[in-house]
Design a protein around this nucleic acid. Structure first.
Lengths: 251, 251
DNA sequence: TAGTGGTCTAGACCACGTT
DNA sequence: ACGTGGTCTAGACCACTAG
């Protein structure tokens, strides 16, 4: 078998890449191209095995890893599906804020304050891999649980990938922002890195979140990535953690 | 094959447990019993396959999952080893605090303030699965990076499992606390859950961490577990996040 | 050279969901 | 009944480490 040869570059200490990794890369490429959209099913393991001229087991191992990374979701008896931010189970996948008491019964509700097109600052451009001349979209919003304002988010998006995004569309939308990005712009966030700090609430934020100036807030700086580790969003959140906490599992 | 029969209970909707899961449970049991100690190698896949009367592939799948959960570490050509908190790569595995600037060059140094035996409070007893009459060990310490005090930890341990722990031993020890727990008490922490909040520094803590009272601190409430999800530690940390942050990867 | 984990295959059968 | 993913097997060969 193995139509796909091990790496063509025969450099000394040639990088060895197992077949299933190559299959994995091909699958990620197809995902990024949009061959299968979020929520849809991908071809069956046997079909993919035939397409790539490998055994079912090899395809299986590739899919296993992609499922472990939450790019795909396996459903026994039904098929394998492209992960989406729309489904109930995984909505707000990246939001780790939980109520101290109950299991987060109160539904999140967002109010959008601002949506503007700007030149990328140096910091933003560097992280999003843009040039200084490129434009970014800047968004500001408040998330409330029940009626209590809890999170102030500032968001930066690369202008090219999110053409036509306006505050009207944001206000009309409901449900998770990442789901909206999927269906409206074909951008599926797959992974994110966060850096957390405790900071004091400044005067403007105090007004927006309805807390005293100086109140300790949890500052969450996030960079989100699509397929292939392409950075597509910067987000800075300020969380009021009086009745909520950020949960995290370590292993 | 399959000496180990599928579940003996034939209740309606009988719980189906695949062979490799059963093997996995047997391996975890052996780990908990201390058949193989942290840092040691476990038997080869073929040996285990012979022992359990299954194929190598089934053992492999069990080990794969345990490696993914960081209970075991695979090393090609050498063997499979019991994970330990001692090795350089994984030391301070559960400490997510990083320097804002460099890659955490400064070495962590701990000063132990207190180590006392107490009756378990109701909250502590509930989480550690103790009775109210059981004793717990309470520890307080300060961690510094370079010379800057950065973390104030309060720790509660079940008294039974940590008999003989004293402040002298803590002060004599260096390196990570979890490594010390391994070698001195045979308790290997494997997983932890954390809840984070931003809080204001109180007067006493201000003195200890050398910051102004009211400074925002990152409060990290952790519960750590050994093999088999047995809770073995409660830890409340207060982090000064002026020059450090808590990093987290989401997927 | 021998032993370990890592990859790949081919085929059988099971569990689940749909038709 | 059929098609999907899930489990299990047996065997071949590869890559890495060590003596």
């Amino acid at each position: 078998m193995s139509e796909i040869p091990t790496p063509s570059l025969k450099s000394p200490a040639a990088a060895f890449s197992p077949l299933y990794k190559q299959i994995k890369d091909l699958l990620v490429h197809s995902l990024h191209e949009g061959e299968w959209k979020p929520g849809e099913s991908i071809p069956s393991e046997l079909e993919l095995a035939a397409r790539f001229q490998v055994s079912q087991g090899t395809v299986r191992k590739a899919i296993d890893e992609l499922a472990a990374e939450n790019l795909l979701i396996r459903r026994q008896g039904k098929g394998t599906f492209v992960a989406t931010h729309h489904e109930a189970q995984v909505r707000y996948r990246f939001l780790r804020l939980k109520s101290d008491s109950e299991g987060n019964a109160a539904r999140a509700q967002s109010v959008y304050l601002q949506c503007a097109r700007q030149r990328a600052t140096q910091d933003v451009a560097r992280v999003l891999l843009l040039r200084g001349s490129d434009s970014v979209i800047y968004i500001r919003r408040i998330m409330s649980f029940g009626t209590v304002p809890t999170v102030l988010d500032e968001i930066w998006l690369p202008g090219d990938a999110f053409k036509g995004l306006s505050i009207e569309k944001l206000q009309a939308m409901n449900g998770p922002l990442y789901g909206f990005f999927e269906t409206e712009f074909g951008v599926n966030m797959v992974r994110a890195d966060e850096k957390l700090k405790a900071v004091a609430c400044d005067a403007e934020t105090a007004g927006l979140l309805n807390v005293e100036q100086g109140t300790p807030l949890l500052q969450v700086n996030r960079v989100s990535y699509t397929y292939g580790d392409r950075p597509m969003e910067i987000r800075r959140g300020l969380y009021v953690t009086e009745h909520y906490h950020y949960r995290n599992g370590l292993n």
